[in-house]
Amino acid sequence: MEINGVPIDETYAEAFTMHASRVLITAFSKQWALEAARSMAGFGTSVIGCGCEVGIEGVEPEQTPDDRPGVNVLLFAPSKKAVQEHLIKRIGQSVMTSPTSACYNDLEAEDRLSVGGKLRFFGDGYQISKRLEPPIVGNGNRARRFWRIPVMDGEFVVEDRFGVQKAVAGGNFLLLGNELPDALQAAERAVEAMRKVNGVIMPFPGGIVRSGSKVGSRYKFLNASTNTAFCPSLRRQVQSELPDGVAAVLEIVIDGLTAEAVAEAMRVGIRAACGPGIVKVSAGNYGGKLGKHQFHLHQLLAN
């Protein structure tokens, strides 16, 4: 299979089930909502080293509970408990601290985690609970509870509970380029297109990762190490996956609320990336032994 003259490897991306929440951050201005969101998403690239994967959704919320500018952040972690722990830490340290911010649940799910209900204690007894019923919060049959925590610029409003659901993390594809600038430009095109897909994040810097990893290492204390098969400098030292003419490989990792969202993001991303300077598009997997989800590139792109 080829797209715009670029061969697509007959392989698949292997992805895993994780749990995810969607957080809506609002503020006095778009700039300050983004400041809080960027801070919350900081150091949230890979569950391996960060404990969770966090990113700002490209699709902006159509409306917000307080009618102020808002930004959605998706957080993925291995378990519901881990999601709750990271939400409490990141909202507490990155959102509550950001001037004028407020923080709401933006994921309707059966399971809900107490987040504002824990952060409220920061109010030192002066926090105020406000429970609004469905007719005015438009939330199906569920009331919503908000905590008003007094802070130095007024009050920080945070929702009591945040929805959590099973999600998919680790969707990916690899762009094998003639030169590094070619691969980088292609990856940038891909990320720009993928940000228009609802319910996905690309958690690495700028959505792109250059240090793809493989499972295991020669060192006992390390359970992941550099993806030697795709490192150009190791082409003659290891069993390389790189065809001749490839000088740089960049990977895009996708986490999504659903497998369909990840598949859609991969589809639009690969189509946008295929162009001059790209030798081949491939994907990372572990032989199908580790991840529940497999995204076969040819199947994705045939649709």
Partner: peptide, 26 residues
Amino acid sequence: TYAPVFLRILFKGLKHLGVQTPPGAT
């Protein structure tokens, strides 16, 4: 004297009930 964010949520909710808040309240 301040602008509680909660009132914005409340007043937006009141619109769902067909109640319009006075201009400038939000």
